[in-house]
């Protein structure tokens, strides 16, 4: 049993991430998971706020278009947000099983 495994067995209340060295690529994957959730929550909030506001009158016009048609602009706007989040937020990590230079 190596030292880290010993620690893991002995200190069961301890944060398990301290018992071994984490792969930074997998840490990035978790950050990207949070990013995805953040964008989808924002999308949901914007969508339902717009819908609940505009749908009060079924004949509401937005920029001269029926509100239900204008809802598609939100989806298109979030296409831009999703593209920006993907390009800027997703790290260009190597996908090999074990990245060269990271192992100890």
């Amino acid at each position: 049993m190596n030292f880290e495994m010993y620690l893991f067995k002995r200190e069961r209340g301890r944060n398990v991430s301290e018992t071994f060295k984490e792969d930074p690529r997998l840490k990035n994957a978790f950050k990207e998971f949070l990013l995805m959730n953040g964008v989808l929550v924002a999308y949901t909030i914007v969508w339902f706020l717009a819908m609940l506001t505009w749908a009060r009158n079924p004949y509401t016009l937005i920029l001269g278009l029926p509100w239900w048609f204008a809802m598609s602009f939100i989806a298109i706007l979030f296409n831009v947000v999703v593209a920006a989040a993907t390009i800027l937020g997703v790290k260009d990590d190597d996908l090999s099983a074990y990245a060269e230079g990271e192992q100890q």
Binding site: D23, L26, N28, A29, E32, A85, G89, V90, L95, S96
Partner: peptide
Amino acid sequence: VGIGKKVAI
């Protein structure tokens, strides 16, 4: 983006 990278590795 949610789980693709982790699943791939």
